[in-house]
Every structure is written in structure tokens, then in C-alpha cells.
């Protein structure tokens, strides 16, 4: 009920009828109650389209998340002016596979966007994501650059370190929000996975988030809660992240993992780097806030 109320505020604010900023009042415990049992599915394969759809099978397939007529947001990492093999952005074929599945499940529109770090046109082009989606030539797919006018200030009433930030309207209003980060190294956060990928839908001076990154990310992820997290570990960046640049830092795994629980997905992906989930501060803080499960033993892990 509370989320619906929040979305109503977003709609009212963005249409300019009311000037009161939307207030997000949902507490993390309520979010935890919303969470389904942490089932997590991992797969390996060379054909990424087949891989994505088989990884989603144990979760009930894409239809468990995308209902006919839904407005779907697929949020890859398109942050950097890097080529697909350099592992700084989500692999274009993974993006394409997810978008295709969403459309097959009856999505009305599928929006793909990211607030980039390098120049947006260079990122969209050189990541291979815009070319591959444009080639699909479907009116339902909207691979557009971020529109500055669509950032809406949100008061995060129950946030611990962040109480106000602006969010992208389309991300807030999506019927189904699918987060598809790429798994890679990051200097400050050690790794950047699903929770950190949310930084691509927020406005403002993002550098400030770094001051108390883990708690800030957890607070942001209470507002943007991914219905489904698919982590692209087809190739992972081991060093010099988050943008890399050298193929020497890239390890090819041909793996994809998926979970409706964003914390569980991050926790498992951490192990691919030879690290323990506890070593990633943002996973720990998010689990503590009740955003999801980080104990690998308490997850229902399915290998496909």
C-alpha cells in the first residue's frame, strides 16, 4: 500500500500539479517482508541468449516478473566508453537477451538507460548496447539517453545516512525493474555489483555518495528495489575497475546469475572473485538493513 502511495506522489509531483516532493516512508523491515524466499540461479554457457533464459527458469521464467502490459525498465551498466570485451559495461548480448524475454512476456515498453560517467553517446555506442538494441528495431524498446528533466527529488524518510536524493522518474515508476549489472572490481567498494548499479538512476553530485558509500547505497536501494537482479559475469574485471581498459584484467567466466533478492545476487557474485560476501561492505550493510539475504547457506542456489 505504501509503495502505491509513494508512486502516486511521484506521478503527482512530476505532472506539476503539486510541488511537494515525494516522501519515501517504507522502512527496510517492510521491504524485507515483501521479499520472496532468496532463490538464486547460476548458469554457464557460451550462447548468452540461451544462458539468460535457462538461468531464469528456476525463478519461474521471465513471466514471474514481467506481466503483460508492463512498463519494464532494464538497467544495465553503460557507464564507460569501453568496448564489450573490456568488461566495464554489461555485455550487449545479455542486455538484448533480457529485453527480448521481457517483450516475449508481453511488456508494453522496455526502457534501457543509464546515467553514464563518460560522455553518454560514446558509452551507449561503444558499449555495443545501443547498436544491438537499435538493430532489434522494435517500437517497444526505448534505448534513450537520460533526460535531465526527469530527475525527481525524493525524501527518504527512513534513510540512515541519506535522507534526500533525486531519482529518475522512469526507474521509480517501472512496473518491473530489472537490474543487470556487470560484475567488476572497484577501488573504493572493492566490487561493483547490483546494489551499486543503482547509482545509474540517481541525479545530483554522485561523487558525494562516496563519503559513506555502503550505507548510502543501501538507503538508495530501499527506494529503487529491483524486482529481478541478473548479474553479468560472462567476463569479469579483476583489477583497474570500474572501467578497466586492458584485456589483461579481464577474466572470461561465461556465467550469469539471477535472483529476485538483490543482496543474495551480490553476495554470490562476490565469490566469483574469490572473496567472501562479508568482505563487501555494501552487501553487509544492505543485509543488516533487511534488504536481502547474504548468507550463502540460507539461499536456495540452483545451478543450471
Amino acid at each position: 500500500m505504501d509503495r502505491r502511495n509513494f508512486l502516486k506522489q511521484v506521478a503527482v509531483f512530476s505532472s506539476g500539479i503539486l510541488l511537494a516532493e515525494p516522501v519515501f516512508r517504507i522502512t527496510p523491515d517492510l521491504l524485507a517482508a515483501e521479499a520472496v524466499s532468496p532463490i538464486l540461479s547460476v548458469g554457464t554457457g557460451k550462447d548468452y541468449a540461451v544462458l539468460v533464459s535457462s538461468v531464469l527458469q528456476p525463478l519461474g521464467g521471465i513471466a514471474a516478473f514481467v506481466k503483460p502490459g508492463d512498463h519494464v525498465v532494464v538497467k544495465p551498466n553503460i557507464g564507460w566508453d569501453r568496448r564489450p570485451e573490456q568488461a566495464a559495461n554489461t555485455h550487449p548480448e545479455i542486455v538484448k537477451a533480457v529485453v527480448e524475454l521481457a517483450i516475449m512476456a508481453g511488456a508494453k515498453t522496455v526502457q534501457v538507460f543509464d546515467r553514464t560517467c563518460n560522455e553518454e553517446r560514446r558509452c551507449y555506442m561503444n558499449s555495443g548496447i545501443k547498436p544491438i538494441l537499435d538493430a532489434m528495431d522494435s517500437r517497444k524498446i526505448q534505448c534513450q539517453y537520460v533526460d535531465k528533466r526527469k530527475f525527481i527529488p525524493v525524501t527518504i524518510d527512513k534513510g540512515i545516512s541519506l535522507n534526500k536524493w533525486s531519482f529518475y522518474k522512469d526507474a521509480l515508476q517501472a512496473d518491473c525493474y530489472i537490474n543487470i549489472p556487470v560484475a567488476k572490481h572497484h577501488g573504493l567498494a572493492r566490487l561493483t555489483l547490483g546494489l551499486k548499479n543503482t547509482m545509474g538512476v540517481i541525479g545530483g553530485n554522485r561523487g558525494k555518495i562516496h563519503g559513506n558509500m555502503s550505507q548510502n547505497l543501501a538507503d538508495l536501494n530501499t527506494v529503487i528495489r529491483a524486482d529481478l537482479t541478473i548479474i553479468d559475469a560472462t567476463r569479469i574485471l579483476l583489477r583497474n575497475g570500474p572501467q578497466g581498459g586492458s584485456l589483461k584484467d579481464v577474466k572470461i567466466l561465461d556465467k550469469v546469475l539471477a535472483s529476485p533478492d538483490p543482496v543474495a545476487a551480490d553476495a554470490y557474485a562476490t565469490t566469483l572473485f574469490g572473496l567472501k560476501p562479508e568482505q563487501i561492505e555494501s552487501t553487509k550493510v544492505a543485509a543488516k538493513m533487511g534488504l536481502g539475504e547474504m548468507d550463502l547457506n540460507k539461499m536456495d542456489i540452483r545451478m543450471v
Binding site: 573504493l188 561523487g207 563519503g211 559513506n212 583497474n240 586492458s246
Partner: peptide, 26 residues
């Protein structure tokens, strides 16, 4: 610089440094 002057975490510069083998390290 925040980590020096304020003892608060930052290294946004390191994150964005684009050279291969980053010129900014920590």
C-alpha cells in the same frame, strides 16, 4: 582532498582515471 584533509573516504578521481594502469592509485 577529502581522505587527507577530512579523513573521509572518496577516491572518485581514482575511479574515473581512464589510463590503462591508472595514473591515480591509492
Amino acid at each position: 582532498c577529502l581522505p587527507f584533509a577530512d579523513h573521509s573516504p572518496c577516491i572518485v578521481c581514482e575511479e574515473h582515471c581512464p589510463t590503462n594502469d591508472k595514473a591515480i592509485k591509492f
